[in-house]
Simulated scan of single mutants.
Amino acid sequence: MFRVLIPIAAALLLAACGGEAPRVPITPKKEPAAEVGYATPPMVSRIETTAAGVILTGSAPAGAPVRLASPEGASLSASADNKGVWRLTMAPAATPRLFGLSTTQGARTIQAQGYLLLTPEGLGYQLRAGAGAIRIGTVAAPAITAFDFDREGAAMVSGVAPAGTAITVRADGRQSADGRATAAGRFAISLTQPLTPGVHVIKVFNDGAEKSATIDTSPAASLTDGPFRSSGTPAGLRVDWMTPGGGVQSTVIID
């Protein structure tokens, strides 16, 4: 699994986003059963770019306040309606942005899982510590949507495929993992062996279809200027970001 290193700056993004986010294991787990006191965290379900700006639509407990906060300290607020739907509108930006999403229930602050990444093109991704990034909204299947890895070479490929179909992942021609798309048509599959630093060809086979991406897994440099850094790569946007546990994870958004 992804190993976690603890730099001094680990709390920067968490403080900016209003609290401590939950840690997420690299192996996806089933949703927890309902329990006394459990509160559903807020989430973003749709992102639209319009003349009015970037519109985020999501869910939260009915009537609950919702807060979207950036590492720089800026924040936007909304309230879920009686059906648990909330909306926020923000100005577009020329650079990638990272946000923490939270709600409150009484004296409790409930963080969304991971962080919200917004690209200049108006696409949204849920970045998850120790797990694969999730593209927000509808994506035509099959597709590789993201590739996550850490400094130790542990990696996970994420994407969309027909619901329930079997998936095989190969790295540099070698079979590296098997999995299956969920009922929602998404997959996040961990590679069985760490990848060495450098360029690798990742191929995903599903029901006769093949998708590939060429990824540079060079370890992320230290985050000295903030809790995340973005850069362009031939495969797509790369974001090196600090996890809640203090490690550095790299997410490549596949074009």
Rank of each mutant, 00 (worst) to 15 (best):
T168S: 15
A181E: 11
R180E: 11
F187R: 02
T138P: 05
V160A: 03
G208Y: 13
A133M: 06
T119N: 05
K203D: 15
D150T: 12
P194V: 03
I167Y: 11
D150F: 12
A131R: 13
P142F: 01
G185W: 13
I189N: 03
P197V: 13
A181S: 02
Q111T: 09
I134N: 02
T192M: 06
P142G: 12
M156N: 03
V169T: 02
Y125I: 14
L117Y: 00
P194Q: 11
P120D: 02
V169I: 13
I189K: 02
A155H: 06
I144W: 00
L195M: 07
N206G: 06
A129W: 04
A143L: 12
H200T: 04
A129S: 11
A188H: 07
P142V: 04
A155S: 14
A146L: 04
A177W: 04
G159I: 01
A141Y: 01
R186E: 09
L116K: 00
P197W: 09
T182G: 15
Y125T: 02
S158E: 04
D172R: 09
A155Q: 07
V204D: 06
E152Q: 12
A146Y: 09
F147L: 12
K203E: 15
L117G: 01
Q111I: 03
N206M: 02
D172L: 06
A131E: 06
A161C: 13
L123W: 15
P142H: 00
K203Y: 05
D207A: 14
G208I: 14
V204P: 00
L117E: 00
S190M: 07
T196L: 05
G130F: 12
Q193G: 03
M156G: 11
H200G: 02
I136A: 13
F187L: 02
A177C: 04
A141K: 10
L117P: 01
A129E: 08
T168I: 10
D172G: 04
S190F: 10
D150M: 11
A140M: 06
G179C: 13
I167T: 03
G132K: 15
Q193C: 06
F205C: 05
G208K: 02
G114D: 13
I202G: 00
A171G: 09
P162V: 06
L117A: 03
R128Q: 10
L123G: 07
T192E: 14
V139D: 07
G185D: 15
H200C: 07
V160G: 00
G114R: 10
R174F: 08
A166K: 11
L123F: 10
G114Q: 04
T119C: 09
Q111L: 06
R174W: 09
I202W: 00
V169C: 00
P194S: 10
G198R: 12
F147C: 07
A163D: 10
A143P: 00
A171E: 00
Q113I: 14
R180S: 07
S176D: 09
Q126W: 08
L118G: 01
A146M: 10
N206T: 12
D178T: 13
S176C: 15
L118C: 05
T196R: 07
E121H: 12
A155E: 10
L195P: 07
A161I: 03
R174K: 14
D150W: 14
V160C: 02
I136M: 11
L127E: 14
L195C: 13
F187K: 01
I202R: 04
T165D: 10
R135M: 05
L118Q: 01
A171Y: 01
L116H: 00
A163W: 12
F147R: 10
K203G: 09
